[in-house]
Simulated assay, not measured.
Amino acid sequence: MTAMPSPQQLRYLVALAEHGHFGRAATHCSVTQSTLSAGIIALEKQLAIPLLDRGAAKRPVFTAAGQEVVARAREALNSLSAIAEIAAAEQDPLSGPLRLGVIPTVGPFLLPRLMPVLREAFPRLRLWLREGLTHSLTADLAAGRLDLLLLALPASLPGAETLALAEDPFLAALPVDHPLAEAGALSADNLAGERLLLLEDGHCLRDHALSACRLGADRAAGVFPATSLHTLVQMVASGLGVTLLPRLAVEGGVLAGAELRLRPLADAPGRTLGLAWRARSSRAREFAGLAGPIRAALGAPATIPA
């Protein structure tokens, strides 16, 4: 009968796969490189199969079986963590560390309002924050590096459960001297002939904005993209084009230092803000318990400039 791998051996293997370097993996696991290497060699002997292709490559190369074992090891470690999380959640819900990933078009505008609410509601919660694009945060969630995501929906989130929190409608942002600057609610047809400025590829807001205007991805071809909403605002203020801004960002002060005009959109298209966690997570009930405080923070809008 094949000997069962130890959790430590699985941690060594997953760390090596994620860091792609024995030294960095050993540092991550707080052991020496020789200890990590010995642990993986021992695992190979126990399983009686090679997990690494020890050729001339400078970086670790996993065999086909090794890649499969790494995937299963991640699942096993997540399951082991879930056991401890179940006990902790029963003893003291929403306490201790929670690793939260937030997209950059939400974090800077919501967190200043949200953090005081969470500190008051859950004083024993220790929130570790990571900002990143949706695809990066999704990978970190699947790998167990993050526990929960606060992001915009719809989004591709395989293997995750989601909880919608609130709608975040778009507002059209125009230069002050634009012919539509004093118009009422604008339609997609009003914006069809305009140079629509967008965030660079990889930001989910880019796709949401194109969808709101009923435009395809080719509509953005040849337009110089912005790296952040603040940059996008400055480009519009300079007369380079128009854009769509989430109401959350406007309420969060994205217009500071820029002079432009905001107009509502007909039918109020926008995005949905929500939470996402790994499917069948033992902490699902805890995560759902955050919905109330987050909705409370979202429901305290500031005055939107005319």
Rank of each mutant, 00 (worst) to 15 (best):
L260H: 08
D147Q: 03
H178K: 05
L137T: 04
A256M: 10
S95G: 07
T2H: 15
F287T: 00
P104F: 10
S34I: 11
S79H: 10
L262T: 10
L125V: 03
L127Q: 02
T27V: 12
P175L: 12
L290Y: 01
L146R: 07
L47Y: 05
L186T: 07
E18K: 15
R271Y: 11
Q33R: 13
V69M: 13
G101C: 02
F62W: 00
R206F: 06
A65W: 07
D92N: 14
L171W: 14
L36M: 03
W128L: 12
V242S: 10
H208W: 11
A185Y: 06
R271D: 09
R99H: 13
A82W: 11
G292H: 10
S79M: 09
L148T: 05
P116K: 02
L47G: 12
T2I: 12
G144I: 04
T243G: 08
A220C: 07
V242I: 05
E200R: 15
A26G: 02
F287Y: 05
A183L: 06
T162P: 04
I294W: 00
M115G: 01
A172N: 08
L52I: 06
F224L: 15
V70K: 00
Q9C: 03
A48P: 06
L100Q: 13
F122H: 14
E18Q: 15
L98S: 03
E120D: 11
A143W: 10
I40E: 01
L146I: 01
P246D: 02
D168I: 11
L43D: 01
L94E: 01
L114H: 01
A48T: 08
A220R: 10
D92T: 10
A56P: 04
G202K: 06
R280P: 07
D267C: 08
L13N: 04
L129P: 01
A25L: 12
P108F: 04
L52W: 00
W277I: 07
T2A: 14
S281Q: 05
E131H: 11
T227W: 11
A268L: 09
A139H: 04
Y12D: 06
T63Y: 03
F170V: 01
L146M: 05
Q9D: 02
L80F: 06
A266S: 14
S156R: 13
V102Y: 00
K45A: 15
H21W: 11
A143H: 07
A296I: 10
L47C: 12
D92P: 05
L133P: 00
A143I: 09
S37L: 09
Y12T: 10
G289I: 06
L171S: 00
L151A: 04
D218L: 15
G299S: 04
G222S: 05
D53I: 09
L248D: 01
L149N: 03
L157G: 11
A212Q: 10
A226I: 09
I86H: 07
A300Y: 05
N78K: 10
H135R: 15
A160H: 03
R219T: 13
L186W: 10
L215Q: 13
T243C: 11
A56M: 14
M4R: 15
R124H: 08
E194R: 05
A266P: 06
H208L: 13
A237F: 08
S37Y: 05
P305I: 07
F287Q: 00
L163S: 03
A3F: 12
T303Y: 06
L174T: 03
D218F: 14
V70Q: 00
V69G: 11
T105V: 13
T243W: 01
P123W: 01
G184P: 03
G101S: 02
Q46W: 11
